[in-house]
Amino acid sequence: SVRGSIPYPEPSGLPPFDPILTWVIAKNITSPKYDSTYALASAIQRTIGEQGTFAHPFIRPAWRNARGKRNIVRLNRQAMRRAVRRF
C-alpha cells in the first residue's frame, strides 16, 4: 500500500467494478495499453485495490484562510451569475 493512502474496505480488497466501468465510459477514457474499456476498468479496479485512494481536501484549506468564507461565497456568487447568464 502507498504511504498515506486508505485501502478500500471491501472483503475482496477490490472496489466494485460497475461504478468504475460507468465512470470510464462516461469520461471516455482510453489507453493504448488496454484493448477494451473493460480491461482498462479492471486495471483501475486492481490499482485502487492495491494502492487505495487519497483524499482531496479542496474546501478545508480554502475555508481556513483568513478570508476563506468570504472568498468561497464570492466565488459561488460569480459562478451562479455566469450560469444564469447562459440561459
Rank of each mutant, 00 (worst) to 15 (best):
G52E: 01
Q78M: 03
P16F: 03
I20C: 03
P32K: 06
A83G: 02
K69F: 09
P16R: 02
I6V: 15
F58T: 09
T37D: 10
I48M: 08
P57K: 15
K27N: 04
R77I: 14
R74N: 11
F58R: 12
G52Y: 00
N28R: 12
A62D: 01
A79G: 03
G68I: 06
I44Y: 00
R82D: 02
N76H: 14
R67K: 07
L21C: 05
P16C: 05
R86G: 06
A55R: 12
E10P: 08
S1K: 13
I44L: 15
S5C: 14
A39Y: 10
I29P: 00
A55F: 10
L14T: 12
I59K: 08
G13D: 10
R81P: 01
I20R: 00
I25T: 12
I44K: 04
S1C: 07
T37H: 01
P11V: 04
W23C: 05
K33I: 05
R70P: 05
S36Y: 06
S12Y: 07
R77D: 12
I25E: 10
V73A: 06
I20F: 01
L40P: 03
T53L: 02
I6N: 15
A26E: 09
L21Y: 09
I20S: 02
D35A: 11
G68Y: 01
V24C: 04
V2K: 13
R77K: 14
T30F: 00
N65K: 10
L21P: 14
A66C: 12
R60A: 06
E50W: 07
D18H: 08
N76F: 08
I48Q: 00
M80N: 13
R77Q: 14
F54W: 15
